[in-house]
């Protein structure tokens, strides 16, 4: 059963006010960061949202938690619409959906102790009259930190420890869904494993559902059930993770997988698989956004935006000429 269901979500940013747009003769004073995004996340599963900078994956996450208003579309969480009353979701939704931000240290308020940081969700939601100290110690133990960390400040923590504090904060209110923005960014390889293992353990113990936003495909392959790949605001391919890695359908997905550095010096790639860079969102290409960089691009790609087509159970691709 789906815990979260997103239908045709669009998020746009105004780049100029009405007056400025009129004076400068801008036809479109918005840039579209997320376009017609639809997906579902099954309860207890992990969805990986993959994309490069500018793909709109972080904007999408912010829209889901209610930090960025969305222009159109619907979000249904656990059978109800948390945005029914306006752009600010209900308090219950804030309890049920927790977000972990990218930078492990700077997502913690610098002048507060670990105890204050981990206890803060309770205070915000009026649950502070419980025995906060005991609650904080329980959470710290759950994420594998000794109780004496409660008195430390964020700058006294290593990246991995700060990330654990972030996890403790995220799970404090027993959420159903955790959205993790680059949970392993900035961490050493050996620490990345610890954090991913911790997230996997908590998922099993607490029945959590995850959306993991990342550009690190090695992480995706190990940590997710389903994967969605975004390019310039659209989901270009979505499907079971194993299937995507075994047989990618979209040329961009294939290029992304091939671009991963090969950690075996005996099998070096001869050259980059993908040339050029992501086009600026201000000059969105006509037709398929990927066509300027795509080796398979044909005339229809330059004219028509491809629709999402189904290829096998739960696997969709937005491409006129998919790889299979």
């Amino acid at each position: 059963m789906s815990l979260l269901e997103i239908r045709d979500l669009n998020v746009r940013y105004a780049i100029a006010g009405r007056v400025k747009a009129a004076v400068a003769g801008l036809a479109n004073r918005y840039i579209d960061a997320v376009i017609d995004v639809s997906f579902e996340v099954a309860a207890g599963s992990t969805l990986a949202m993959v994309g490069e900078s500018g793909s709109g994956k972080s904007t999408l996450a912010r829209a889901i938690v209610g930090l960025t208003p969305f222009a159109s579309g619907s979000i249904v969480f656990d059978g109800s619409n948390p945005f029914a009353t306006g752009p600010h979701p209900s308090r219950a939704y804030h309890r049920d959906v927790a977000m972990m931000f990218q930078d492990p240290v700077s997502s913690l308020s610098p002048r507060r102790t670990v105890e204050a940081l981990v206890g803060e969700p309770f205070v915000i939601h009026g649950l502070g009259n419980r025995n906060l100290g005991a609650e904080v110690r329980r959470l710290l133990a759950l994420v594998g930190l000794p109780a004496d960390f409660a008195g430390r400040y964020p700058h006294q923590l290593s990246g991995g420890q700060a990330r654990r504090v972030g996890v403790a904060r995220a799970i404090a209110l027993n959420p159903k869904l955790i959205i993790a923005d680059e949970p392993t960014a900035g961490l050493d390889v050996s620490v990345q494993g610890e954090i991913l293992n911790l997230l996997a353990r908590l998922q099993a113990e607490l029945g959590l559902t995850y959306i993991v936003i990342t550009h690190n495909l090695a992480v995706v392959r190990h940590a997710s059930d389903r994967t969605a790949i975004m390019y310039m605001g659209r989901i270009v391919e979505a499907g079971p993770t194993a299937e995507i890695f075994a047989a990618a359908l979209h040329p961009y997905t294939a290029a992304l997988i091939a671009a991963q550095p090969n950690p075996d010096p005996a099998h070096r790639r001869s050259g980059p698989v993908l040339t050029g860079e992501v086009t600026s969102l201000r000059n969105r290409p006509r037709g398929c956004e990927f066509h300027p960089r795509c080796a398979r691009a044909a005339d229809d790609c330059r004219e028509l935006v491809p629709a999402a087509i189904g290829r096998g159970p739960g696997h969709t691709v937005r491409c006129h000429h998919p790889l299979a």
């Binding site: 550095p261 090969n262 950690p263």
Partner: peptide, 24 residues
Amino acid sequence: ALIACDPARISTATRELPVIPGDV
């Protein structure tokens, strides 16, 4: 240990990644 930890080198998907215990 460092090479073993790199998730890109682990060919079969796993939820239990190897780590180097302890701190620097």
